[in-house]
Amino acid sequence: MPKVTAVNNEILYYRFDVDGDNFTSAGEASVQTKRILRRVGFPPEAIKRVSIAMYEGEINMVIHASGGVAELYIEEDRVVIVLTDHGPGIENVELAMQEGYSTAPDNIRSLGFGAGMGLPNMKRYTDGMEIETKVGEGTKITMTVNV
């Protein structure tokens, strides 16, 4: 049997590669996140908030940044999601946070996405959200959901 050693026994860590080339696979990390949180025993209300935040983040990375990485840190009483991409960055964060503001292309909108609710929903469903972004370099979003 392999030796089980963990750096920090209190934090459960997962990393998901969000594939930018495949729009239909967007949302898979959210589904897996749901399953993991259910097994750990988080209340449904918290699972809902985490899975919506994760879903919106995945969709954003696929639409705007041709993919990225979603990381999940699970602790006893909180979940932290870190989304990192190397896309175009966000020019005006304040504007991007406004409901209904979107820079999504038409072909994405015709699929029902790009309604300008992604970032606002991520903020609404989490207890804390930080955006670090640099135009031309990429974006890192850190969200926390407390239980």
Binding site: V4, A6, L12, I36, R39, V40, G41, E75
Partner: peptide
Amino acid sequence: RKEAIRMMK
């Protein structure tokens, strides 16, 4: 949950 996290790891 603490125990569940350990077990999951």
